[in-house]
Design a protein around this nucleic acid. Structure first.
Lengths: 345, 345
DNA sequence: AAATGTAATGATAGCGTTAACATAGTAAGG
DNA sequence: CCTTACTATGTTAACGCTATCATTACATTT
């Protein structure tokens, strides 16, 4: 380690016998530099083990090489999985990440974002649901010309680039799967009312039922909020009904886990007496017994793509991007585990 | 937003009618500046809404205002809870955080750390268990003069400051609690063999048994690795024994959750037929049913303290710190929930 | 009152990089 | 062969801040 001092651009320039500026250009694979010179410089940088100084770079270029991530997502496993994906890609691209959790209070949230903009001067921002739908934040970012990518946004779809999966289709297919297993009494626990995904999943569920001519009583629909706790309350109601559902489709895994807990409490066997399915395939789906049948959401890929988009700089000037290039829909996959089975007559 | 351009030190200096240097001193609440001047400058900074430029600061001062966090902890909930604590304190202190997950491979791990040192130039580093015991990494940090704080380290205790809780005492008390509930056949699932905490908890368990003159057969001890999966394997063995234990003490919550899963599979009622207790009080302890009785480890406080220590700069030069100031032991608390109950004869 | 010490403040020179402009070098067009 | 039009490289001046040393102002000692 640290044989002498860290190599600077000047050292590389001297060794490769060009000006500092040329070195800088090569390093930013910027302009037109002749191939010969480029190679010479690359080699020199290699031998000196040159590492650019992030601060100097930032100061001079007015770029920060920082990305921000904003979340107020209630599901810890969703967030941490997303984080991992972003982190990985950031590293590969020489960026760093500033993470921030925001809350209900719009004042303090706006202050957080202002702080990130002013102090950290991020080059871009990733917004997770549901914070990605907060109008004031979007406006703040736009007025400060901070590029951003939203994940599974609900409203103002044509405002900026975003990444999502087909929640509707996944919920539809998952529900049909339950129907094929013989279930007709399928209840649903809706997710966080603030998130579009909840509505889409709910709609997919409804449409699958309708297209199979299945009617369900209104008591089979419960409102949750994507938290384990809300799942407990919803499942308690569903499992106390006179005519108990034979299957429950919870809008995410946390609530599905809660449903299984309630079933345990009530001595209802899962899956023998009750099929439970979730959504997301987060960690909790496989750390309880029975493991939850669910929809695998490609969280890592979403994270990777979001980061890539920002790093590419292609979306820096929104006015130059056609709105139809905003949308990126990733594939899902239905994963069947032990929490679901065919209806026993 | 951005009425004109961002205020710089020069602007503050002019407004408060002192030199830039004095402003800088006030901002870093550094040297001796007269209270009058200090106030003048503060007021000016306030009115101009001055925000220091991190990059310029870094470049000039050779400080980075970055902290690094290194983990290879198998428990996601432990890590993310820790993260939250660090993040919060970092923000309060004007620092930013660079997170890195490392793996078994010592080569790639060392490269990660070198990268963090060279590129990000962190001012300090927090090491979670078990990576905090990897000798090569400690040596690398020391030789590069990067201050670091370790969390629950196992070896080389007098090398550098660290934070921990009394794992031994907690395990002892928890085991005694089980004994007081009438249990005599208490099994234990040991944690990750690489972590000192595992050994301390195991020892506390053994000593509590001994001090109550309870003998347990060797089959009652299973080796796990702090993962849910390892808990499944261990619990399967324990619950297949001829003479089944009436209580199982798993060395963390993930493995306790796994134990409860296995009990479910085998139709063994928890807590009526089997008491299960865990350790850590991470999220999973309350997102399954029955909720797990466990030891609350003060993760947030640990995170907060670790960050504070690094930010304070008091540990920058280890040679100036007395070794007996290295140790910070935080309090634990035993939390009784539904997974444990008194033995039914 | 002079000498010395100390606390508060100021002037200057970078930190390592890139933006912006300047120049040299080369190819093509007349 | 001399313009014109690039293309590849170099020069200079920031970027915003702090370290270092110099200076001033004032208190204390002799």
């Amino acid at each position: 380690m640290s044989k002498h001092t860290k190599a600077k651009i000047k050292d590389v320039a001297e060794l490769s016998d060009v000006s500092m500026m040329t070195v800088s250009r090569v390093l930013n694979n910027d302009d037109k530099v002749s191939d010969k010179t480029r190679k010479k410089v690359m080699d020199a940088a290699e031998t000196l083990n040159y590492q650019p100084n992030v601060s100097a770079r930032r100061l001079a270029s007015n770029k920060s090489f920082f990305l921000g991530l904003l979340y107020d997502n209630p599901s810890a496993s969703y967030v941490s999985q997303f984080l991992l994906g972003v982190l990985k890609r950031c590293r590969a691209s020489g960026y760093h990440l500033v993470i921030d959790e925001v809350d209900e209070n719009i004042e303090s949230t706006l202050n957080s974002v202002k702080d990130i903009i002013n102090v950290t001067q991020v080059d871009g921002m990733i917004l997770l649901p549901p914070v990605c739908d907060r109008r004031e934040i979007l406006e703040l970012l736009i007025s400060n010309k901070i590029p951003f990518v939203r994940v599974s946004p609900d409203t103002q779809i044509n405002l900026a680039p975003y990444i999502c999966m087909d929640d509707y289709q996944a919920a539809f297919e998952l529900t049909e799967k339950l129907i094929k297993l013989g279930h007709k009494q399928i209840a649903h626990i809706i997710g966080d009312i603030k998130q579009g995904s909840s509505r889409l999943r709910y709609q997919g569920y409804l449409d699958a039922l309708r297209s199979n001519q299945i009617n369900i009583p209104p008591q089979y629909i419960e409102q949750g909020s994507f938290t384990y706790k809300s799942g407990l309350a919803a499942a308690s109601k569903l499992l106390s009904l006179e005519e108990r559902p034979t299957a429950i489709f919870a809008s995410n895994d946390d609530m599905a886990a809660a449903t299984i807990s309630v079933a345990h409490m009530k001595k209802i066997d899962v899956p023998d007496e009750l099929t439970v399915v979730g959504f997301d395939d987060t960690q909790i789906a496989t750390t309880i017994w029975p493991r939850i049948s669910t929809v695998r959401q490609p969280i890592m890929e979403m994270a990777d793509l979001a980061t890539k988009m920002l790093v590419s700089g292609k979306f820096d000037d929104l006015s130059k991007v056609k709105a139809h290039n905003f949308r990126h829909v990733l594939d899902f996959e239905i994963v069947i585990r032990e929490s679901s089975r065919s209806l026993v007559p």
